[in-house]
Amino acid sequence: MTIFTGYSGDLSQPKLEYSLATRGLSLWYDQFKALDDITISVKTGIITSLIGPSGCGKTTLLRCFNRINERYGNVTVKGEVTVMGRNIYDPDVSLIELRKTVGMVFQRPNPLPISVYENVVFGLRLHSESSALKRSLLDAAVEKALTEVGLWNDLKDHLDRKATALQLEQQQKLCVARLLPLKPEIILLDEPCSALDVNGTRAIEELMFSLKGRYTMLIVTHNMAQARRVGDECIFMLLGRVIEHGRTEDIFLNPRDPRTAEYIEGRYG
């Protein structure tokens, strides 16, 4: 029994319209209120970009969806967060199942200091009995995941290379690839290109396009042009609040809120 799946593969059931949602979500670091009454719904299968000036709480919001915020002891959360229709703060929700369903890519590529191969199968090793992990199964998982992110041809002869020695762009792609064997529904990306150059940025964006439809993606970005390129929808945040959420064209061409317009015109940020 997995709590969060059953929507994407199962044709008898309609796809859930929203993979991620929050209702009245507020978050405090000690006394500091970093998120203030956030209510959003993120559509299944598309790319939603999360923009806003530095320090407005984009990373904090993103890290609510896999509850990794709770690593810090000083965090208090109020409100509801649902993933695939389930409230993830319900006591019977398994944190492990949640994190298998919701993958995360970080700002700096952070492959583990082990081989490329072991990075890709890391999730499988965590969540399966070692007796169930036959070599052929692992090999197949590695080939499939690396092919999906477009690394297979470059790395198939270097699977035992240390992952931390790869180029940054390859590292970041690997960080996407290692999520895939766990069959996530959602991929969260926190400024995944901020450490990369122009070519690396383009490569990651193309990767996101190729994954679109199969995964729901929520990407934090600092880069307005990137939000325009990759985002089907766009959420604009300011000072811990969501100001506007809509189709990317609408946000950029006809913003409803003057603060959105000001940010997009580059008057602050």
Partner: peptide, 10 residues
């Protein structure tokens, strides 16, 4: 970042 990578994968 290594710890976060591992924990984010469950």
């Amino acid at each position: 970042s290594y710890r976060e990578a591992a924990m984010a994968m469950g």
